[in-house]
């Protein structure tokens, strides 16, 4: 993506949904959270928005300073791609995207 497109994407807001699983769902008492975010957003900004929308996630799925996810959680975009846990790395989002927040401990 060239710089101009990235800049444009960063300024464009998109409506997305974060679906909650596991203790995140129980703690928040809801299955999903609607968010409006820049189309190009960092994990850190996403975590911060999510924490503001659902404070019960702080210390549960989101670290206390709201800068990222706790290591026990992972994010998956639309059921296919896993989102990098690097807080500064940007995620390219589109209207209607669904992020799934669930345990990073697979299987069992």
């Amino acid at each position: 993506m060239d710089a101009a497109r990235t800049d444009k994407a960063a300024k464009t807001s998109v409506a997305i949904t974060v679906e909650l699983f596991g203790t995140a769902r129980i703690t928040c008492g809801q299955h999903e959270v609607a968010l409006e975010l820049p189309a190009s957003t960092s994990l850190s900004a996403l975590a911060s928005s999510l924490a503001n929308a659902c404070p019960a996630l702080i210390g549960n799925a989101i670290v206390n300073d709201m800068s990222g996810l706790m290591k026990s959680y992972t994010l998956n975009l639309n059921g296919t791609a896993f989102v990098s846990d690097a807080p500064e790395k940007h995620i390219e989002l589109q209207d209607g995207d669904r992020l799934l927040l669930f345990s990073s401990q697979a299987g069992g």
């Binding site: 596991g22 706790m70 669930f102 345990s103 401990q105 069992g108």
Partner: peptide
């Protein structure tokens, strides 16, 4: 955090 799932909901999660 490496065992959080197992300690809370277990593999049922």
């Amino acid at each position: 955090p490496a065992t959080e799932k197992y300690r809370t909901l277990g593999t049922m999660a």
